[in-house]
């Protein structure tokens, strides 16, 4: 059956490509390069087609075709802006007319900057500062105080202080301002420097934890790929 044949060909192709890709761990070679370029081409072609299918056709081409026939899916002014902006952006293809597209890339940069600011403030800074309320386990502290377990309440305070110190010193580590000292390296205020030193330890610990996460994710990918190869080898030998 052709579909069976196709799926078997797929498995063999996938196994071969996996094998070649993994061989890069032992060194670069021309066959790996071929696979690399194949990958870049496929990924780009797929991404380009999805951009057309999902965005450009429904957002630009179809509305324009319909407008041509007198049916307006979207407001004419909006449509005109879309067409003009798109046309200006396409001028970037021409070396001589590329500058005409600058206002459009400027628009993208403006939108990008605004989204960055909005995301940073509403998505990162304020939620993270807000999350600091959980640094000290207030409920446990209250219970300990009410029950007269002062040792336990001190433990809550100590734990919270360490966690708060981790956040604060990490933030302080990045303080950039310093005072010039002639030919000596610039110096930050001593308090900032001390806090920054503590912060650097926390930062390194964090980076190590995150690095371990990535390493384990990569190891998992390796296991999945090798398991696939073992499976294919078993299948081929079984036949």
């Amino acid at each position: 059956m052709p579909s069976d044949l196709l799926s078997q060909a797929g498995i063999v192709a996938a196994a071969l490509l996996t094998l070649i890709t993994l061989s890069y761990a032992f060194g670069d070679h021309p066959v790996f390069r071929i696979v690399l370029y194949l990958f870049i081409g496929i990924a780009a072609g797929y991404a380009g087609a999805i951009a057309i299918e999902d965005v450009i056709l429904p957002q630009l081409v179809f509305p324009v075709l319909d407008a041509w026939n007198g049916v307006f899916q979207i407001a004419p002014a909006d449509l005109i802006v879309r067409v003009v902006l798109s046309a200006l952006l396409l001028l970037k293809l021409s070396p001589r007319a590329a500058n005409l597209g600058n206002p459009v890339t400027a628009l993208l940069a403006g939108v990008g900057a605004a989204l960055a600011i909005g995301g940073a403030v509403q998505g990162t800074i304020l939620p993270q500062v807000g999350a600091a309320v959980t640094t000290f386990n207030a409920a446990q502290f209250d219970l300990a105080m009410q029950g007269g377990h002062y040792g336990e309440s001190i433990q809550v305070v100590v734990e919270g202080t360490i966690l708060l110190l981790a956040t604060v010193s990490t933030l302080a580590y990045f303080h950039f301002g310093a005072t010039a000292r002639g030919s000596q390296p610039p110096l930050r205020p001593i308090v900032v420097d001390g806090l920054a030193w503590v912060g650097s330890i926390f930062i390194v610990i964090t980076l190590a934890t995150l690095f371990a996460g990535v390493l384990l994710a990569a190891l998992s990918a390796l296991i999945e790929r090798l398991s696939f190869l073992v499976g294919v080898a078993n299948m081929l030998m079984g036949q």
Partner: peptide, 27 residues
């Protein structure tokens, strides 16, 4: 989640009220 995403997602398990109720990560 992936193992690499877990360290950055765990804080949401502790937030009040908890926005993240459960997490299964990695192998």
């Amino acid at each position: 989640g992936s193992t690499q995403s877990a360290p950055l997602l765990k804080p949401y398990l502790l937030s009040d009220p908890p926005t993240l109720r459960g997490l299964v990560d990695g192998f």
